[in-house]
Amino acid sequence: MKLLLALDDGPGARRAVDEAIRIARQQGATLDALFVIDATWDVFTGHDWLSGCNSRIGFLEYMQGLEEKAAAETARAFLERRGDLPGELLTAPGDVVDVVREHAARGYDLLVLSNPFTRGLEVMRDAVAKLTRDAPCDVLLVRPAPE
């Protein structure tokens, strides 16, 4: 069995990681984790037409830096919890939903993600609705732990 965990740095992220690890251990499955570096800030700020190149490039580089920092922190937290479970840690840039969907179609049996899934600009969108609508494999949605 192959599991894909879509990593998030939002409030429900930790419980999704725990659930994915629990299922992988129970099933003796491989657990791959995917962190998508959101590369859609350019389109999100497309309404900004008057910034000069320097200003805009400076902004996009700043956002890229924050995304990479989030990727490193999330990966470190995941690796600490995963222990000796077999699997890979994947990082890919792009549109979060598109990249997760594309990876999930690569022979995985189950996609695990937090609900709501707020990676990058998905905080402004509805990644869960889009991913579950035409998911290429089974999907497990994990709610945040009750406060």
């Binding site: 309404h47 900004d48 910034s51 580089e61 700043y62 995304e67």
Partner: peptide, 29 residues
């Protein structure tokens, strides 16, 4: 000053967080 463009110009200098910035831009727009 100039809505989204000013937010884009200011964000790196004030260490704006992505979520806050996204919410600010959506509000202004």
């Amino acid at each position: 000053v100039c809505g989204v463009s000013a937010a884009v110009a200011t964000a790196p200098g004030v260490r704006a967080k992505p979520v806050d910035l996204a919410l600010s831009i959506a509000t202004i727009l």
